[in-house]
Amino acid sequence: MASPVEQFAIQNLTAPLFSIGGNHIAVTNSAVFMMAAVAVSSVLLVAGASRGAMIPGRFQAMSELFYEFIANMIRDNVGNAGKKFFPFIFTLFIFTLFGNLLGLLPYGFTFTSHIAVTFFMALVVFLAVTLIGIFKHGLHFFSLFFPHGAPLFTAPILIPIEIVSYLSRPISLSVRLFANMTVGHVLLKVLAGFVVALGIFGVVPLVVLVAITALEVLIALLQAYIFTILCCIYLNDALHLH
């Protein structure tokens, strides 16, 4: 039987197209699912956005649901200053969401189960947010590392703690998504192995498998939401400090 982690293997589907800095870039299974996420989400959303009817149909209602969901998230967590970042945060949510969901299809590949992808996204967000904060507040931005109103003598303890906590943000952000996706798919694979191994009694793990699949859909939605809302909260910290 295949190892439960074999599903995460990156496979080149074409010969290397070109190379960047000595690294050969080929179309991989991960790349195909990223393209699929872009294609599926774009088709759904463009179809939903193009009609612009006063009374929305199914696709339009779904598109507007996503739009209002992210717009409200930004309004509640960042405020008016966050409007400029709406397209980026919306794209981040849609890309993560469709990556998580398409990975649940049979024979699918979950690109969000790779630390390289999640960490790169988290790192870009982290660096962008830090630069926005420094650009907006100058040196005052570093007051983020010392909670307002804390006694001065606690500074030697608090400031290192705050710095470590700040620097660990991209790690916690990326590991949360990567670990949730990986563990979920490993669990599904292991349970599926039991279904085959137990023969007729495989019905029992099969029932569990169905339930866990439903749970994984929930986790796919939830982790996309958590990833996005944490980015909003980090952005809010940078824009408004504490």
Binding site: A31, M34, F88
Partner: peptide
């Protein structure tokens, strides 16, 4: 390879969202 495709796909999705959808 993953980061390359991530950047490309994210940029394409961003462009579509920012111009055609949002």
């Amino acid at each position: 390879s993953q980061i390359f495709w991530l950047v490309v796909c994210f940029a394409v999705l961003y462009a579509i969202m920012a111009t055609l959808v949002l």
